[in-house]
Amino acid sequence: MTVMTFKPSKPRVTLSDSARIYLSKEIRNKQAAGLCFSVKKSGCNGFKYMLDFIDKPSSEDDLVVINDQQFKLYVTQEALPYVNGTEIDCVTEGLNKVIKFINPNSSAECGCGESFSV
């Protein structure tokens, strides 16, 4: 019997231009070093996306997906199998800006888009 582990050769999470602009402003406003992208068990479909402002990455957040002078996005190793290939977008709905996650690994999402299953 063999055990297989998930190790993507090229981890990939992307941001749309509108998400990059919006999140860069929010990082500056919060005076944070970057964002940590993770998932937690929650919601009606099993998992919930989490974007947290961080001052420095923890040992879990050792994967830097986006790294330029103004923006750092860390993805936890635990979340990567669920979010690899995801595009983070920012859209305007009415008067509000909303972060949307376009995840090719998701098999179902709740109506509000906050939780998903794989």
Score class of each variant (00 low, 15 high):
residue 107 S to N: 14
residue 3 V to H: 13
residue 10 K to Y: 12
residue 10 K to Q: 12
residue 108 A to S: 15
residue 54 I to R: 05
residue 40 K to E: 11
residue 17 D to F: 13
residue 47 F to V: 01
residue 44 C to A: 11
residue 3 V to G: 06
residue 30 K to P: 04
residue 84 N to F: 01
residue 42 S to I: 06
residue 91 V to S: 12
residue 2 T to P: 05
residue 118 V to P: 06
residue 113 G to W: 03
residue 55 D to S: 08
residue 61 D to S: 10
residue 105 N to W: 08
residue 17 D to A: 13
residue 48 K to D: 03
residue 8 P to V: 13
residue 45 N to S: 14
residue 102 I to Y: 10
residue 36 C to L: 09
residue 11 P to W: 11
residue 68 D to N: 10
residue 50 M to R: 05
residue 61 D to M: 03
residue 60 E to M: 02
residue 71 F to E: 06
residue 112 C to L: 05
residue 13 V to R: 03
residue 95 L to W: 02
residue 45 N to W: 07
residue 86 T to F: 01
residue 56 K to T: 05
residue 54 I to K: 03
residue 54 I to C: 07
residue 55 D to F: 03
residue 92 T to Y: 06
residue 48 K to F: 06
residue 70 Q to T: 15
residue 13 V to L: 12
residue 112 C to H: 10
residue 37 F to K: 00
residue 47 F to S: 01
residue 101 F to A: 01
residue 48 K to C: 10
residue 78 E to R: 05
residue 20 R to A: 08
residue 98 V to S: 04
residue 111 G to S: 10
residue 92 T to M: 05
residue 41 K to R: 12
residue 35 L to I: 14
residue 43 G to H: 03
residue 21 I to Y: 10
residue 91 V to G: 07
residue 47 F to L: 10
residue 84 N to V: 02
residue 4 M to R: 12
residue 116 F to G: 01
residue 107 S to G: 08
residue 65 V to W: 00
residue 107 S to W: 10
residue 31 Q to G: 12
residue 31 Q to V: 12
residue 33 A to C: 11
residue 104 P to N: 04
residue 114 E to S: 11
residue 66 I to A: 09
residue 91 V to D: 07
residue 97 K to V: 04
residue 41 K to T: 11
residue 83 V to Q: 00
residue 55 D to G: 07
residue 111 G to R: 06
residue 8 P to Q: 08
residue 105 N to Y: 09
residue 47 F to K: 03
residue 96 N to G: 02
residue 44 C to Q: 04
residue 55 D to A: 07
residue 21 I to L: 15
residue 97 K to F: 10
residue 52 D to H: 05
residue 87 E to V: 08
residue 77 Q to F: 05
residue 13 V to I: 15
residue 29 N to A: 15
residue 99 I to L: 10
residue 42 S to V: 04
residue 21 I to R: 11
residue 107 S to F: 10
